[in-house]
Design a protein around this nucleic acid. Sequence first.
DNA 1: CGAATGACCTGTGAGC
DNA 2: TGCTCACAGGTCATTC
Length: 297
Amino acid sequence: MPELPEVETVRRGLAGTMEGARLVAVEQRRPDLRFPFPDDFAARLTGRRIEALSRRAKYLVAHLDDGLALISHLGMSGSWRIERGPDTATPGVFHHERSKLAAHDHAVFHLESPAGEPSRAIFNDPRRFGFMLFAEPGALAEHPALSGLGVEPTGNELSGALLATLFRDRRTPLKAALLDQRLIAGLGNIYVCEALWRAGLSPRRAAGTLATATGRPTKSAEALAIAIREVIADAIAAGGSSLRDYVQADGSLGYFQHTFAVYDREGEACRKPGCTGVVHRMVQSGRSTFYCPACQR
DNA sequence: CGAATGACCTGTGAGC
DNA sequence: TGCTCACAGGTCATTC
């Protein structure tokens, strides 16, 4: 499910319930996801209040009242859902066989709002590429998962000039450079394909060609910066893209997938006005790239 | 050092 | 109706 727009959509869907709520119980239903759960996972969370839920790139961060931070990643197939109202399972007794849980519900966070209303936030992940980590109090920015991340593609920071600086002298294809989380953090396969189409740039083109010999941004660099920011903003406004999994915490679907210009449209007509091209698919660094050979140069 | 490849998992859909 | 294969929104470790 998850590139930046999906994670941001999930964050917004969870924040209203999680922020300010207390964790009255935590069920860890298997020893690991992609990595083992942190030591004493449930014990360290139980009783804590969630002060804020933030996002960095594709990571969600729950900030707890003792300074501990719970970092979570959805991997490829992770999702969260909120259930409201009393838990119908036996209070205090958590069984793996409990009927209301679904397959691949790996962690259940029992919450209580400041007004005393019960709810649950449930993490589900069939492929288990997702993971959860702790950052100790005061050590969030230095956490290995976050410290190497590049610029967020959502704000003014991402400019043509910055792209020129980041990409200068790089011979790697634009597709690979844009997927590199150390440069820009939060783009994934879908939005890289879409941004390159919007900018009219070939995914094969060497990243370094967006900078002049003196490191200044080319017109293409400016176009790409704008395309990235716009496609991310459009996707967030649409609630993300739902392909195989639900995106939003209330179970509703994002609808940006209906707007795709190239992603998963192999053999279909290019949507650029006046372009008679057909969308092609190729594999770059092991991932499908969708593009229009006619208008992406 | 950078860049490419395989590994990690389960589920789904296409083709036979 | 089954079976097999390819492929899926991401990252990390290993190779060259």
